[in-house]
């Protein structure tokens, strides 16, 4: 297990390095320069500015410098916001995004789980059809539609929650709900189909034949086995929530990381684009890593680190 973790860490670093490299060079293809109005700058000013940010050096040197700084944990300075480090910019913006995303995942997983379990246990009844209906709606309607509908009804018509902006906790509720719709739908559908499959398996009958109560059968034998595949979708799902925040943050005017990301792409703020890309990638890779570890814990048939377990 320990060896496996170290090995995975190694792969994670390599993956990140590849992502940084590709992003770094791709960014050079973006039209324009990091300076907002280069035509207004004199030759001398441009030179000075370029020298300050190291843009006068050959690309290869720029790349090596960036990687060198990165290893020391330095993501560089913003080209646009005077004197701000990329790390501090991410730090300022991460709070709202994490709150919205985290709440959306928690709401989504909880509601999806409950819907899915009810659906499977009450298979082919009105409860089942009801939750399948909810799941299909959540799956097929994009989150910005929910967002707009909620803003109109909850925010404007009923005045229950603030329509947009970011002042206190209540401002985070609607964005989280809008984001969670897709999570609810995905988790519910998955739990339902996995549970139905497990319920049909013989070991569930064996468990019942032992005389333990149906509740214990469901909790101990069915859920545990049904959860294994669900954990695997949670990784990609969390990531789609992360990218989903781009749109939602825009709609609700939340000062989050997604909004910052779109902004820096528009103004060619190279170091910020690189920094946020790197941050998103690292998060993604880390989540996938956690999911893999969880998978190994939940399913004993998967052994970590290639160490073969003795077979009879």
């Amino acid at each position: 297990m320990g060896r496996y973790v170290v090995q995975r860490m190694g792969y994670m670093v390599i993956t990140l390095l590849i992502i940084v490299t590709i992003t770094f060079f791709l960014m050079q293809l973006l039209p324009g320069t990091p300076f907002s109005n280069p035509e207004k700058l004199s030759e001398r000013q441009l030179e000075l500015m370029s020298a300050k940010y190291g843009l006068d050096k050959p690309l290869a040197i720029q790349y090596m410098t960036y990687i060198g700084n990165l290893i020391q944990g330095d993501l560089g300075l913003s080209f646009q916001s005077e004197g701000r480090t990329v790390i501090s910019m991410i730090g300022d913006r991460i709070g709202p995004s994490a709150l919205i995303g985290g709440q959306a995942v928690v709401i989504g997983v909880l509601c999806g789980f409950i819907l899915g379990v009810i659906s499977a246990l009450k298979h082919n009844t009105i409860f089942d059809y009801g939750s399948v209906f909810v799941a299909v709606i959540g799956m097929s309607i994009p989150s910005f539609v929910f967002a707009a509908l909620m803003q109109y009804y909850i925010g404007v018509q009923w005045g229950l929650l603030p329509v947009a902006l970011w002042k206190d906790y209540s401002y985070s509720i609607m964005p989280s709900l809008a984001l969670s719709a897709m999570v609810i739908a995905t988790v519910a559908r998955f739990i339902r189909s996995e549970m139905l499959e497990v319920l049909g398996q013989e070991f569930v009958t064996t468990a019942r034949a032992k005389g333990i109560t149906e509740f214990v059968v469901i909790i101990r034998h069915v859920l545990r086995n049904a959860l294994i595949p669900v954990v695997t979708v949670l990784g990609p799902l969390t990531v789609s929530i992360m990218t989903g925040t781009l749109v939602i943050e825009k709609i609700f005017a939340v000062p989050g990381l997604g909004e910052q990301f779109t902004l820096s792409i528009l103004v060619n703020d190279y170091s910020v684009i690189l920094g946020i890309t790197l941050f998103y990638s690292a998060l993604f890779i880390f989540i996938v890593f956690i999911v893999d570890i969880l998978y190994g814990i939940l399913d004993p048939r998967i052994s970590m680190g290639g160490g073969k377990k003795d077979a009879a």
């Binding site: 013989e202 070991f203 545990r224 086995n225 294994i228 399913d299």
Partner: peptide
């Protein structure tokens, strides 16, 4: 009354 099932490959809980 106890029961033994047909396929021992599937009649035991794989995660327990």
């Amino acid at each position: 009354i106890a029961m033994v099932f047909q396929d021992p490959m599937t009649s035991l809980n794989p995660t327990m």
